[in-house]
Amino acid sequence: MFLINCPYCGERDQQEFKAGGEAHIERPKQPTELSDDEWAEYLFMRKNIKGVQFERWNHAHGCRKWFNMVRDTSNDEIKAIYKMGEKPPSQ
């Protein structure tokens, strides 16, 4: 059970949060211009890394804010947490 440092509320128990999959996948601005393959890439394709992964998390039972987390999926170490729209930390 992680202890997650919500950028708006501070440290909270994992129970209050919801994971939202891979981060930094931007919704295409002009979807209609995309081929089926390009759209499928956005819609379906997600990484599943053993190691450092960039993820979206939501403080669902708290401030309801979305934010990003860098987590090592092999040992669940949280490397960084930053707000939506902020630049991801360099590797």
């Binding site: 919801k18 931007e26 939501n58 669902a60 804010k65 979305w66």
Partner: peptide, 13 residues
């Protein structure tokens, strides 16, 4: 509500 919040906060801030 969760889905709408998601779009508002992450895609269309």
């Amino acid at each position: 509500l969760g889905k709408l919040e998601d779009y508002l906060q992450t895609e269309w801030p």
